[in-house]
Amino acid sequence: MIRIFIADDHAVVRQGIRQMLSLGADLEVAGEAKDGWGVVERLRAESFGLLVTDMSMPGLSGVNLVKRVKGNWPSLPVQVLSKHGEIQVAARALKAGASGYVTKDCEPVALLDAVRKVASGGRAISQELAEQLVFERDARADAAPWELLSDREYEIFLHLIKGERLSAIAETLHLSPKTVSTHKMRILRKLELKSAAELVCYAMEHGLLS
């Protein structure tokens, strides 16, 4: 029996994941959390065979959560189940230590297959994302400026290009507005841009808007 811990900030999504995983007789959802800090707290007290986590949750989440989990529990496999289908987000999650990445619009059987494969020590990523990863790597000899953004900067970059206010981003990520503003300035400087409007144009030109 594979003991699975699921993390997502939406209760209805966690319930849906539970229902999908219940289709597997060898799978058991043994715990859940609504944010990254809840994941860390539970993992300190109990062992699991697999973590299935969203990428976008309040506070500790995404790449930072994956790094924290793999740094403290390196033997625990991490399967990302995310709404983000952008190859850039998937690449960063895999680089941080996740063993699998599938999107929330996948078929239940695809999630079951991914969960079993990752829990057994393998890797699982949707075929479309895998192909994009290969072609993206082969097409780029040098890193583009946006690829040089830190994980936190890239996370804030994704919020900015959606037109979100700094205060809203700060609340979502549990950061101070001043910290978010500082990151915004660094992002603009690294990309040699001057405004949020130029950020959006830049994202469109480089296919970073889903």
Rank of each mutant, 00 (worst) to 15 (best):
A11K: 07
R18L: 10
Q19Y: 08
Q19C: 07
M20G: 04
A25L: 08
D26R: 14
V29N: 03
G31H: 06
G36T: 04
V39Y: 01
E41V: 07
A45M: 08
V52I: 15
P58A: 10
N64F: 02
V66W: 03
V69G: 08
P74A: 09
P74S: 13
P74L: 10
V78M: 10
V80Q: 03
S82D: 01
S82C: 04
K83Y: 08
G85K: 07
E86Y: 03
Q88P: 00
V89H: 01
L94R: 03
K95N: 02
A98F: 04
G100S: 05
Y101I: 05
Y101C: 04
V102P: 00
V102L: 15
T103I: 12
K104E: 11
D105W: 04
C106G: 05
L112K: 07
K117G: 01
R123L: 01
I125M: 03
S126E: 06
S126C: 01
Q127D: 09
R137D: 01
D138V: 05
A141G: 06
D142Q: 13
A143Y: 00
A144G: 00
P145I: 07
W146C: 02
R152H: 05
F157A: 00
H159R: 12
L160G: 12
G163V: 13
R165T: 14
R165V: 12
R165Q: 15
R165E: 15
I169M: 13
T172V: 13
H174Y: 13
H174Q: 15
L175F: 14
K178V: 15
T179Q: 15
S181N: 15
K184C: 11
M185W: 06
E192F: 01
E192S: 15
V200R: 14
M204S: 12
E205K: 15
L209M: 13
L209K: 12
S210L: 08
